[in-house]
Design a protein around this nucleic acid. Sequence first.
DNA 1: ATGGGTTGGTAAAATGTTTTACTAAACTAG
DNA 2: CTAGTTTAGTAAAACATTTTACCAACCCAT
Lengths: 347, 347
Amino acid sequence: MRTTVKDVAKAVGLSTTTVSLVLNNKPNRIPEATRKLVLKAAKELNYRPNHIAVSMVTKKTHTIGLILPDISNLYFSELAKVIEEQCHKYGYNVLYGNTNGTLEHEFEYLNLFVDRSVDAVIMTVSSNYSETDVKRLYEIGETNNVPIMMVDRTLDDPRFMSVLLDQKLGGFLATSYLINLGHKKIACITGPKNLRISIERLEGYKSALGDAGLPFDRSLVIEGDFSVDSGSRALPYILGQNATAVFSLNDMMAIGVYRECRRYHLSIPQDLSIVGFDDIFIDEFLEPPLSTIAQPVQEIGKYAVKKMMSVLEGKKNPCTDAGDTKIFKPALKVRGSALKFTEKKQI
Amino acid sequence: MRTTVKDVAKAVGLSTTTVSLVLNNKPNRIPEATRKLVLKAAKELNYRPNHIAVSMVTKKTHTIGLILPDISNLYFSELAKVIEEQCHKYGYNVLYGNTNGTLEHEFEYLNLFVDRSVDAVIMTVSSNYSETDVKRLYEIGETNNVPIMMVDRTLDDPRFMSVLLDQKLGGFLATSYLINLGHKKIACITGPKNLRISIERLEGYKSALGDAGLPFDRSLVIEGDFSVDSGSRALPYILGQNATAVFSLNDMMAIGVYRECRRYHLSIPQDLSIVGFDDIFIDEFLEPPLSTIAQPVQEIGKYAVKKMMSVLEGKKNPCTDAGDTKIFKPALKVRGSALKFTEKKQI
DNA sequence: ATGGGTTGGTAAAATGTTTTACTAAACTAG
DNA sequence: CTAGTTTAGTAAAACATTTTACCAACCCAT
């Protein structure tokens, strides 16, 4: 059985109050001798406070809930790793939940976590929220007094803290790069059409086209769902449109394009240039290494928990006063999947 | 503020006892009318039990601790995903911690988690345990009455439950495949030398060699550390030994070999055949797709939590009577990274 | 010796539940 | 009508802490 405060109190013949006082080194006047005595006994009995009991009275669990769409996705697993790492540094543990991108799961985990009295929630929402959904989400945070932070994707509500990426800039960077290589017919494989990040990345694409005086051609964009397979499925269409380059809104779909190109005996980048988005681990090991838009995941994760900790330890009402959004800048990472456009490259 | 039992008790003019009784539908004789009344009030007030308080009295948190070396590693992130998924199905949440493979972190998280009264711990140990380490680990489990399950890698102690892979068989399968393709000089890139899985996979390698009447040549094995870079570093040595094939003890190092081969302008599998181990997600997207030994991660994860749940809900002392080890069989997954050996292939 | 301040502590409440042991009232059988 | 049984419910303890409010004893100065 675990040692309790009572046990150590009994061992030293003092009250639990005194023991608790020294163990939490409260600024009470406790003579050095007593302090030493208690500390020694606690150590000998291998006393470790029962965190549940502590939480009961302090109302703090030093736990944060992390709600992600899919931890087996490289981007999120890396994000999860940084976040856990950072939380750990601040003495916090993380409870995590996989939503598979469904609204029901997002709410389910949120409720589960507030029931467990997490001190805060960091989540990336992946489905479409109606106004009432947003309201419901906000209210859960408020009535439980747990600050909610959106990472990677946000809701249209300034009351939530958000740490995001400038998605539009990412789309712009990728597309401009392709344009500068001389490509005129640049296809775009999007994510689910009404998902924020799809829209924003696509806006970057349009804006780069516009800046270069190139027309935006609706028939060059095809909807995917961020999965490898949807990338594969998109290729025939893209080829049909005589595109010479493609901007894939994430790396997974780009991988799908790679795979399909092999089936068609097309080579990247000679026959088709491609740039992805996310900079997942495997990009550099693909053949050819995939050029992509890199998100500063490490910084994003670090910033997110740092901000959250300051909210948690700050004086302001963590829930209602916290809203604030930070936007990180993505960067183009040139590897080997895009080439200067030359006429003969047409198939 | 959250609604408490007191609130709903007050709302219906009954005692908290009664409310608790109906909410937990205990087999007490409570008239249907009262039951309905309470349920209705609870719903209207949006009552949700405070899990911390419940844990305080029931001594169950419905939380399991998951301790892994590196969640950004594809194998572990997938494992983590299944485990979380399954736990969720049983009504359990998971607290997770990343150890980066260090013993200190393993103990740190274990302690942290038992302090938080997790009901069980599932972990993969990655460092070398001395006898006293094992003893210490066991004692933490015992004094806190939390069953500990080793997954993927085990300690030499029958008291822990373990769910493992038949590593030796995996090594055997990979090597036999290469032998059957006609290779005689098969190099092996190992993991850290005294790690169990390194040893066991290597044993499979030796045994396949033996079965085929091929000599075991010490100079054909080179130590890696399971990282991509260590795979890359191993290539020149392997080439120096005139090996025509290599068995990499994990896929990451195989990826390192791929990368280095490109630098040497060698092509796989024409110039070098390779088979990996783990079957991580990206294997099929490499060029050529990597043949490997597949672990049934899904099944492993499912089995692990199923077993754990039966222990948790069983009558036997979960800690001391639980020991039991299940061993899953790996399978060879042939893709495109190995070729029949022919003399002209020598460089 | 009285009163004020300091020193070294402690008892008890509080946290939100579950659970045990009990009881008052109503009903039933003889 | 009474004794026993059932019905419908409750008070209080327990869980392991922290924290608040208090107190006794001692010391010191007047």
